[in-house]
Simulated scan of single mutants.
Amino acid sequence: MRDRPTGRIGSLDGLRGVAAAVVVVHHTLLTIPAFSDGNYRAAVPGWASWLVYSPAHVLWAGSEAVFVFFVLSGFVLTLPALRRSQDWIAYYPSRLVRLYLPVLVSIGLALALFFLVPRQDQPHQSYWINRHAEPLSLHSLFNDVTLLSPSLVNSPLWSLTWEVFFSLLLPLFVSIAAVTRRWWWATGIIGIVLSSIGWYEHVLWLTYLPMFLIGSALAAGWERIPDVGTLVGWVLLPASLAGITAEWWLPDDAWWSPAVRAIVLASAGVIVVLAGKWLPAERFLLGGVPRELGRLSFSLYLVHEPVTVSLANLLPATFPSWLIVVAIPIGLGVAVVFSRFVELPAHRLAKRIAKTLSTKPPVPQAV
């Protein structure tokens, strides 16, 4: 019998941790001019081009890791609501406290670093770092706090905008998943197609919200999805890791770019399935390092970027490559403190709110 946790699927926490680590590596490498140029589709000289324009891009595929986050959120919030009735009155305030309280504190931290370490546009810095030298205004601060349109004070908050929208629309997603449970795979395909169309047409809500629908579809069909055999898994793993970076190494032809985006999104869904249905992946993701990264993932996601940008502005021009050695452990350390004193208390408060407003057991929350 497989060594699986009951209830909560622990290996998905490990996957979230690995995805968060990829985002951290992504932003750290963007402090190096060659990788920053490659991220904006410029020519990259030498060996760095191999890490940009090949399947090896998966090591720092930050945007694609966020796609995995979105699919995971669709899955982990839909699954409990399908398994038992959801108390929506208790859900909404609890969920918003769970998201917004850590976000607000992370904005405070980012603002403190913004004033302590001024962002400067300097010739030796990467284009990505210099973009952070934008002025601060009350309008941008309002957009940060509300998550309507986050600024570069803490740029990863852009994804929280869509997490909030999805959280508010969760009853709709759960209803779709419940009604189409027998045809869950069709719902997943529709999510992939809609998101690909949205990306091609530059419609943000149509690009990102269907990614959550992919996760909701997987939740609806989870009991029908068979365990992945060992050999099949070893085929699907490299295929999905290559597929999720397809936009970086396949020819960039406009006429078929929606199909390439569909490959990326399908690969994100396959990665989630492998994490929960393929024993080698489950065992790895249930290991100490992935699980610890999973525990810290939300805090790490919220605090690492302002820390990285501040260090890039502090260190001399001769030090850019060594920033990787410095920024990652410092970001992890700040995340540990943030998790202990901000995220966990916010999580406990959200659970108390849910318990106060409902007589039912609180539904597990996730980010």
Rank of each mutant, 00 (worst) to 15 (best):
A254F: 11
G331D: 00
S310F: 06
G288P: 00
V44R: 10
T359R: 13
L109C: 07
P316E: 00
A34H: 06
R295I: 04
N313P: 11
Q86T: 15
A90F: 02
L79G: 05
T318L: 07
L285C: 14
L111F: 12
S299Y: 01
N39K: 10
W184P: 02
F298Q: 03
P150V: 08
V18K: 00
G46M: 10
A20E: 00
V334E: 04
G269E: 01
Q365N: 11
P5L: 03
V272R: 08
E343F: 05
R2K: 03
F70W: 07
V289K: 05
W183G: 04
E223C: 08
L213F: 07
R295E: 07
W248F: 14
L160D: 06
V76D: 04
G191H: 01
L77R: 11
A346E: 02
G243R: 08
L12K: 06
L209E: 02
G215N: 00
K360E: 13
A312L: 04
I244H: 04
P238I: 10
G269Q: 08
S358C: 10
G10H: 08
N143L: 14
Y40H: 10
A65Y: 03
W162M: 12
P280S: 09
V289F: 06
Y100P: 01
S49R: 14
P210W: 03
V260G: 07
K277D: 14
N143G: 12
L82P: 01
L241Y: 06
V24C: 02
W183A: 14
P238W: 08
F298M: 08
S49H: 07
G108R: 11
L218T: 11
H202K: 15
A178T: 11
I107M: 09
I225F: 08
D253A: 14
V334Q: 01
G331A: 12
A281D: 06
S149E: 13
A42C: 03
K355R: 15
F35T: 03
G46V: 10
H347E: 12
S137G: 07
Y200G: 07
L349E: 06
I263R: 03
I189F: 11
S267N: 08
Y301P: 02
L357Q: 09
P45M: 02
V58H: 05
V97Y: 01
F115I: 04
R2T: 15
Y91W: 14
R295A: 07
A219L: 12
A65H: 04
L96C: 05
S63H: 15
V105R: 04
P306S: 13
W60E: 13
V117D: 04
A133D: 10
S167T: 15
G269I: 04
V336N: 00
L29F: 10
T359Q: 12
P102F: 02
A90T: 06
R181Y: 10
A259T: 08
P118K: 07
L104F: 10
T28M: 04
F319H: 13
T356V: 00
L172F: 15
L147N: 05
L231P: 03
